[in-house]
Each structure stands twice: as structure tokens, then as C-alpha cells.
Design a protein around this nucleic acid. Sequence first.
DNA 1: TATCTCACATACCGACGGTACGTACCGGTG
DNA 2: CACCGGTACGTACCGTCGGTATGTGAGATA
Lengths: 196, 196
Amino acid sequence: MRTRRAEYSESTRQALVDSAVDLFTKRGYAGTSLDEVVKRARVTKGALYHHFSGKQALFEAAFAQVETQSIESLTAVISGDGDPWEVAVAGLRAYVRKCLDPEYQRIIVHEAPVVMGWERWREAEEHFSFGLLRSAVQLLVDAGEIEDLPVEVMARLLFGALSSGASTIASSSDPKRTGRDVERAILRVLEGLRKK
Amino acid sequence: MRTRRAEYSESTRQALVDSAVDLFTKRGYAGTSLDEVVKRARVTKGALYHHFSGKQALFEAAFAQVETQSIESLTAVISGDGDPWEVAVAGLRAYVRKCLDPEYQRIIVHEAPVVMGWERWREAEEHFSFGLLRSAVQLLVDAGEIEDLPVEVMARLLFGALSSGASTIASSSDPKRTGRDVERAILRVLEGLRKK
DNA sequence: TATCTCACATACCGACGGTACGTACCGGTG
DNA sequence: CACCGGTACGTACCGTCGGTATGTGAGATA
């Protein structure tokens, strides 16, 4: 049953999350006040605390929204069932591009581990970007394309390297050039792991 | 001229920084109140705001202290002038060990980029751990040990991978095993970049 | 229509970062 | 030795912000 009240409620919740994503991206978690969030969403703190248990919960909702959108755009790239190596390379490129999105970079890469705590962040990432990356690495190992080092660890290292690379690109004075360098370096590292 | 007054003052400042390092490590930046810091240092906020312009400045002092200690222990490892490759490997091992130190991991790796802002963190790191790592990479390239990809980018990627790897080890249920896996994986990546 | 419920709004509290101002003590000067 | 200037704090207070308790009105229910 889809009542009108429920629609209003969902709309309010969505407005709060959108506002949160926007402000957390611009000013960070600590720099964003809930008063600002509710003001931009044209509601009050009563609404916020009705939908979320607190600031942390609101952040996690913003986190989930950004990650969900990312997953959608990434799976579209990966779902093609061509040569595993080609697919993996395309996925890498797509992920680096994603990391350059301000929302993703600020909320997911930089703030989330601190705000949610590294342990909880890691757990949440299992179902999102990191989970996807690990499956990709697993595919490459299964296909015999790269050495079969422990997948979990390999994925972690790659994840860290990619995030760091994306941050470097984003704050570079010549993003285009740095972007090419990062891509080439990552590909070169993968080539180094490739079985002949 | 080393007056007694200056010694007292320096001692007070040091007590504040030590207290800050300890509390920031245990509870993080946001979770640490300045009242706690000054209480543990057995002074008041007046003293704190005499020595530091605010909470951020106190954090940066803590950051500098932890990094300075790290630099000292790392340069000791690297300063040996043996085979560049051996020195680099020893340096990598030493850095991963450093990342497992709670103070370093929490303050430098996790909190600093968020608290100081990524840009400022990057700038500060030029004179500390990252600067050291980049020189090490530069040495390997100059010695013709690895491919001469852009050093800056390579160092960034390696830095991110190492930090991520260290976090993985620290939160692993079997740190010893994970530690070995991370070391092996990193070395394997470097081998892949090695010129034949 | 009467009632109930829930999705908010309003008013308020305590904690915390930061500031203004007071003060005691050290170190130099006549 | 008396005096004085400045440094190194301590104390009292303010504004902001996250969180809570309670009121209320529109929409669902019978």
C-alpha cells in the first residue's frame, strides 16, 4: 500500500540525504552543522531526528547513497563479458574516474574511514566499491591472468593505491597529465604481475 | 641563553603535546576534548591557548612530533649505503612496521588528511615520511633498478598501498599471517617493476 | 465524524571550542 | 633592594552545535 503520507515522508528523507551529501562534500563532516542540513532541506531538526538516529546515521545514509550510485555506474562497465584482462583494465579506468568525483572522493575515500571508524568502513565497503574490486581481482586470478597472491591483500593494496592516485590527480596542477601518469603506472604494475 | 622560565614553558608545551598524542591516538581528533588534554597535562586551557592557536594547531604539533620520531627510526634503516635494492626492501619493511604503531596509524595515516585537509597534509608530508619514500623510489630509478615511471606518481601509489596494507594488518584476526602476505605482495609488485 | 497515529516543529539542555581578562612570578634595571 | 615590564599561565564566560523532550496538526482508520 502506497499512501500519500509515506510519499511525503520518503521525499523528506531524500531531501535530507541530498542536502547531507552536498554539504558533507563541500565542508566535510565536522564542518557541516545539522542546522545547515535541515535548513537546505527546508525542514527542521525534528524531521532529521525522526528519520535518523543522529549525525553519524545521516552520514552513513549519505555514504550509502553515493556508494549505490557508484556501484551502478561501475557494474555497467564490468558486466560486459569480454576478455577478463580488457574488462579489468576498463574497470580500473572507470574506478579512477569515479574517485575524481568530489562526492565520492570526499565522503567515501577521505571522511568515511574516520567518521565511521576504519573497521565499520571496511565492513560497509564489502558490499560496495571494495567488494567489486576484489571480485575483479579474483576474476583475474581465476582466469590465470595474474599471479595468485592472496586476493584479499592484493585487493586492499590496489584499493589504497587507487584512492591515493585519485587524490593526487584531483589536487594536481595538471590533472590531465597526472591522470595519464597514474593510469600508466597502475597498468605497468598490473603488467608486472601478469603471467606470461 | 637558556633561562629557567623557558625550560618550564617548554616542559609545559611538551606535556600538552604528549597528552594530545596519547588522546588523539586513543579517541581520535573529534572524540578528544581539550578539557581532557589539559587535565592530563595538569594545566588549564589558558596554558594550551598560550602555546597553540587552537585545537588544529595542537593536532599539527602532535602530528609533527610523531612524524619526527618516525623519521629518526626510518633514516637509521635507510642510511646504510649497501645495495640500493636491499636498502629499499629494508626500508619498506621498516615503514610497514611503523604503520603498525597505533600513534602513527591513527594520527598520521587516518586522521591527519581529514583534520588538516588533504592539501595541507600532502604539503606537510613532503618533509616527513612521504618525502623519505619518494627519495627511496628516486634512488631505485637512478640506480636503474626499476622502470623509470614518474617518481612522484609511483611514490604516491606506493604510499597509499602501504598505508592500506598496514591498516589491513592492524585490523586482521591473524596479523602475523596478514603481515607476511602484505610483505610478499608488495615485494612481488616491486619485482614486477624490476628491470631484468 | 471521531479518533488515532505518525511525521514532523519548537523549545531547550549540556558539552565543547574559543575568548577576555586577571594574576603571579621571573628576569632585568636603577 | 625596590621597582617594573612582560611572559606564562589560571579563571570566568560566551556562542555554537549535537541531541532530547514535548507539542501539534494533517492524514489514515474505523
